[in-house]
Design a protein around this nucleic acid. Sequence first.
DNA 1: AATGCAAATGCAAATCATTATTATTTGGAG
DNA 2: CTCCAAATAATAATGATTTGCATTTGCATT
Lengths: 150, 150
Amino acid sequence: MSEIITYKEVLNHKGLKNTRHRNSILELLETSTQPLTADQIYLALVNQKISINLSTIYRVLNTLVENGLIIKTNTVSDNKTLFELNSFEHKHHLVCMECKKITMVDECPFEEYEKKLKEKMGYTILGHKLEIYGVCKSCREKENNGKSIV
Amino acid sequence: MSEIITYKEVLNHKGLKNTRHRNSILELLETSTQPLTADQIYLALVNQKISINLSTIYRVLNTLVENGLIIKTNTVSDNKTLFELNSFEHKHHLVCMECKKITMVDECPFEEYEKKLKEKMGYTILGHKLEIYGVCKSCREKENNGKSIV
DNA sequence: AATGCAAATGCAAATCATTATTATTTGGAG
DNA sequence: CTCCAAATAATAATGATTTGCATTTGCATT
């Protein structure tokens, strides 16, 4: 836990009960460097000798999304739903097409662009999602040992 | 058909047979102002008194994606796959959170940003996807007739 | 510490989008 | 017109996610 505030307090404040499952899921997402699928969470917890049902994971994830503690995303390549802790910071995803790893980037070049869209299209802009696809350093190096396609 | 080239020719060139189903799906996507789900395509065709099977639609869509004629996307809100004609132009999606309508925008402010990411993260950038969320003009106006939340 | 009750969980079955299988039909080359 | 590979229909299978219902648990109150 990187904050002084514990999940127990956060959950309480939202009127949610402080259960071991909610805590272990939140803790797992906190230590993870990237968004996880429900299934990945399930496997990770089972690995930690925690007995939990997959449907419970889905239910916990959904309540946490509804209460703004975590964020739901989905990938373009495969059709899976990913969950990550809501850091309340504006982040974008850098997705490696080879190893599928996701890296977070926090720089965002958009204020200008959004203003333009607002004027041109008459939209009220609420937010955006940006995913950038590429090949990460280590995958590119692996490939260069063989033939270089990219 | 907005081009001199017919779909028949395009399909031929790709070594694909020119079937009525492929044509009706391509024509439907051409007239559509926004990406469609397999199911929406199915309903639209049935509406046109065209007898077609849903699995055929999926199969046709997948071959068309493989051959670069159409593009696969997916929505953040619900877990559905969307298909749109590949215009071979770089476009982004402007998504209305009220009516879920998608508008295309062609301006893209990214060359600079991608260069930066390449240097900083060591990534080879292949492409990106940007979705912008907001409320479209007509939805905002509808809302203002009641109470204005947004 | 014991009680009560709503909320949370486990388990199994249901649902939904998508894919695979197989028999039948069709486009189009010859 | 004939033939065959490719395309399609119909149906079953799959995999992710949701739901119904019985049981358990958190926690406020006694």
